[in-house]
């Protein structure tokens, strides 16, 4: 079947989609967006978290056909999404100048990052990094609604995202850091 939906503000079309394919599979294998990770395929790890019409969901549990006509934001679009939010622009509108241009192809340096992305790097919240994309999408969404979260709020909001490397402490630091920078307007 054919599926049309919007990813990171751009219309996308996938053809010859097998009906049992998940949104995650289509993003990763058909649309060249492997940032959302496949770690459990049963909604138990959060590595595949994307925003579907603004709401964080496990993309492994969304049938590809269910995404028809919907708006999806993945980690690849997180920086643009955050930038639009800070400008107060309508979310999902395509951007004239996407981030990523002029980026160092070896390290990604020069890429414009969302505050939560920068905070994850600065706080040492990234080790193997496989859980990182899902955590970033979930954490960014939490800070959107709750700019001054308590530790318990952070833990609850991120309780659907497993990390095996860090013991979560540096992830807590990263979210606190992003919240603090956000409140300082940095």
């Amino acid at each position: 079947m054919r599926v049309n939906f919007t990813v990171n503000g751009r219309p996308q079309e996938a053809d010859d989609v097998w009906e049992g394919e998940s949104l995650l599979y289509v993003l990763r294998e058909r649309l060249g967006l492997p940032g959302s990770k496949n770690a459990c395929e049963q909604g138990e790890c959060g590595s595949c978290t994307v925003r579907l019409d603004g709401v964080p969901v496990c993309s492994c549990l969304v049938a590809a056909g269910q995404a028809e006509g919907r708006e999806v934001v993945t980690v690849e679009g997180l920086a643009d999404y955050a930038r639009q939010r800070s400008w107060g622009a309508a979310p999902g509108a395509p951007l004239d100048s996407p981030s990523g241009e002029g980026t160092d192809s070896l390290t990604g340096e020069g890429a414009e990052l969302a505050p939560i992305q920068q905070a994850f790097i600065d706080a040492g919240a990234v080790q193997c990094g496989f859980c990182t994309p899902g955590l970033l999408v979930a954490a960014d969404e939490m800070l959107e609604h709750n700019p001054d979260p308590s530790d318990a709020d952070i833990r609850e909001a991120l309780s659907g995202n497993l990390c095996r490397c860090t013991g979560y402490e540096k992830i807590m630091d990263a979210v606190r850091l992003a919240a603090a920078r956000q409140s300082e307007g940095v």
Partner: peptide, 9 residues
């Protein structure tokens, strides 16, 4: 129920 992501769906 499960996780925030699952509760959203």
């Amino acid at each position: 129920v499960a996780s925030p992501q699952i509760r959203n769906r």
